[in-house]
Design a protein around this nucleic acid. Structure first.
Lengths: 235, 235
DNA sequence: TTTAATTTTTAGACATGTCTAAAAATATTT
DNA sequence: AAATATTTTTAGACATGTCTAAAAATTAAA
């Protein structure tokens, strides 16, 4: 009986969507930068104003989800990081669901997963995970944290760092903007594809590559945003 | 390019979760009562105060989703009804998904579906519908509107209206409270089960029924909340 | 190292959705 | 039909999350 009440009375510990989105943004910036994250950076990432960020940071700091000193930026606390990872987990699992089960393509799923990641139910996530047979990576090649927050971080390098004749596999993208994903879609480039570098143009660093035995030319900008399996060296 | 902008700039026509919930509540009350719905009724249904309802009704009225005259209650407009039905459709499809694919039982899915029904994406709903192979009814026996809002309304009667020796099928429940569903779960009573009335006690109208060849006794209150296929008469 | 530029924070405002308490309208009694 | 009870609305307040404009702190430049 008392169990039902807890479902309907808004849980004090429950975070709003806005709070969750901030945690996720800070987490993503931390992964890239590994230092205290500035107000402006978060504002840019969240497409909002610095003053709004300051307000929210104070709230998150009160809840001890971030460590914050005025003018010195923020870092996630242990608890904050745990929550951020759980949101990333949900986001990536839902992306798998949308692509694998509902026939979406990888450039269509982000906005929907952005909404689904805020659904509150631990059981739901765990059951979804099982239903998808515990995928280790999402359709963009990003690792999916398990129930405990652990994930396989594959070593990836930009395709632009390889040399002619090198052969590798596309593991993910650096830029996951809609425009870039749509470009890849049009060119039939997808995660898991085998890529062989055929030649590199000296003056603009554009590349000729074969992808699935299909020869195409890509600019250096594209090559810098295609993350591939690092080469294994044989001695 | 401009397409992306529309995704992120909040669409003027997009309704908030609160607005959607009000429309759904009014729709559900209208189905039961078929007349203008009073402020107090909505307040009770939404577990909120009459003054909050008035505020929201004004907003929905401005958007022409309900017809409202002060002190005279509300009725959904055509547009409002369309939206309400689309939310019901989403709710029931998600319930199917949770039970059929994620192994939830029918008494666990309501709160989660309540959240999922607000996810904004027409394609998502349609793809989900196809993935579930266009179910006509949800796990509680309620009809699922199709893409155009049409649904099969089965004629149902309360089990309490039947007589000894009558045989029928459980199609749904009237009371879908957590407590009642959990009771049914415990007694192994589920949608689709064949029910035969064995005897009815005169003084308290309690019933002995066989359900799946299993004899159990139920109170009149339970029988009034079990909705079954109406009897076919043979001439 | 003082000045200038940038970043961050504060102060005050606004929109949404809620509430309480009081006023207004409708419904029910007598 | 007047008095009473109930329902509905209004008025004013509050919480959340956002914004603009101005002040404060930090960083960069001369």
């Amino acid at each position: 009986m008392s169990k039902n009440i807890f479902i309907f009375v808004k849980n004090k510990n429950m975070l709003s969507q806005a709070e969750e989105n901030y945690l996720k943004a800070i987490y993503s910036l931390e992964s890239d930068l590994a230092k205290a994250i500035s107000t402006n950076l978060i504002a840019k990432k969240m497409q909002t104003k610095a003053s709004s960020v300051t307000d929210m940071i104070k709230k998150l700091s009160d809840k001890e989800l971030v460590n914050y000193k005025k003018y010195q930026g923020v870092q996630l606390s242990e608890e904050g990081k745990k929550i951020a990872i759980s949101i990333v987990r949900k986001h990536r699992l839902w992306e798998c669901f949308l692509v694998d089960k509902l026939n979406f393509s990888w450039d269509e799923v982000h906005d929907i997963a952005e909404q689904l990641e805020h659904i509150q139910s631990e059981t739901l996530v765990d059951n979804l995970d099982a239903f998808l047979e515990f995928p280790s990576h999402d359709p963009h090649g990003d690792p999916i944290p398990d129930k405990n927050g652990y994930m396989y971080k594959r070593k990836k390098v930009a395709l632009s760092t390889l040399n002619p004749q090198d052969e590798t596999v596309l593991l993910g993208v650096k830029d996951s903007s809609d425009a870039f994903l749509k470009y890849l879609n049009k060119k039939n480039i997808a995660i898991g594809n085998t890529i062989k570098v055929q030649s590199i143009e000296l003056f603009d660093k554009s590349m000729e590559i074969t992808i699935n035995n299909h020869l195409i030319s890509i600019t250096n900008q594209v090559a810098e945003n295609l993350m591939v399996k690092e080469l294994e060296f044989k001695y």
